[in-house]
Write a protein that binds this DNA or RNA. Structure first.
Length: 271
DNA sequence: AACGCGCCCTGTCCGC
DNA sequence: TGCGGACAGGGCGCGT
């Protein structure tokens, strides 16, 4: 479900709401969602203060001092702050009860998500192995050019491979390629420096705009307040099969690459 | 090594 | 109306 803009939206909400709050106790309702045993997870997280909330790739990182609670939302995970007197929401996986009686709730219909408790060092090592952040200052056309060398895979699945660039998933991969006027089927290694620069700019632009609009809700995504994202209506190709291209009017095409849907304009994206 | 594919799981929608 | 299949924002592990 959530790609970089959706995760970033949740992180900003959470930071504002629960930074410096203290977790009184954790209750694991679905043991398969947490790493290690449910009881050790509950024990380790009790009586911890939340020093900060941040994002790395598509992960929400809750800084608990010596430990990091790392939440990956999978396809349908939701993290929200509840008042505490309300009933448990559906598909509740984990409840983090705060000392001020609010509750951070993790819900997940499909249970592809994960909550992991790592030491600061374990998290640092994990983070060091991840790809480059597309909104960081080290990301530019040269980065895209360098990382794509010798990659025979098509550029669209390459964009979604978190070993190279993080945070871009199925929606924003299609949207970035449309803005850069690049064919999703082109081999990554065939990108010229010029095309790589166009793609880097398109990625940054679409991610920034999507964050401004608080992310894209197709079905399940909600922010930390339970609200939908507003970027859905700004999508130019994703989920628009058969509809006219907003630039040239050609019907948008859907193909399958690496088992995932790709949407593109066969006329504008010949390059 | 790099890449494609199946799988994890539940819900929804569409065609017959 | 009912049913089976396709599909859904992610990521891992397997085989080639």
């Amino acid at each position: 479900m959530p790609e970089l803009p959706e995760v970033e939206t949740i992180v900003r909400d959470l930071r504002r709401k629960v930074k410096h709050a203290t977790i009184r106790r954790a209750i694991v309702c679905r043991a398969d969602l947490v790493s290690g045993s449910a009881s050790s997870f509950e024990t380790r997280i009790a009586d911890r203060e939340i020093d900060d909330v941040s994002r790395r790739a598509k992960n929400i990182v809750i800084d608990l001092g010596t430990d990091r609670l790392v939440v990956n939302l999978g396809m349908t995970g939701r993290l929200s702050v509840l008042d505490g007197d309300e009933a448990d929401p559906p598909y509740l996986g984990v409840r983090l009860e705060l000392t001020d009686h609010r509750v951070i709730a993790y819900q997940d219909v499909r249970r592809f998500g994960r909550l992991e408790l790592l030491s600061a060092k374990e998290w640092r090592d994990r983070s060091a192995k991840m790809g480059v952040e597309p909104l960081s200052s080290e990301f530019d056309g040269e980065t895209v050019f360098r990382l794509s060398r010798e990659r025979r895979v098509a550029v669209k699945p390459w964009l979604m491979d978190q070993h190279f660039i993080v945070g871009v998933g199925n929606i924003y991969a299609s949207e970035s390629l449309f803005r850069a006027r690049l064919s999703p089927r082109r081999q990554a290694r065939r990108l010229t420096r010029r095309r790589a620069a166009d793609l880097a700019n398109a990625i940054r632009e679409v991610l920034r705009e999507a964050i401004e609009f608080r992310g894209t809700t197709l079905l399940d995504y909600r922010d930390a307040n339970g609200q939908k994202g507003d970027f859905s209506s700004r999508l130019r190709v994703y989920d628009r099969e058969g509809e006219p291209c907003l630039v040239c009017g050609t019907p948008i095409k859907r193909i399958v690459q690496s088992g995932r849907s790709t949407f593109f304009c066969p006329y504008c994206q010949r390059g």
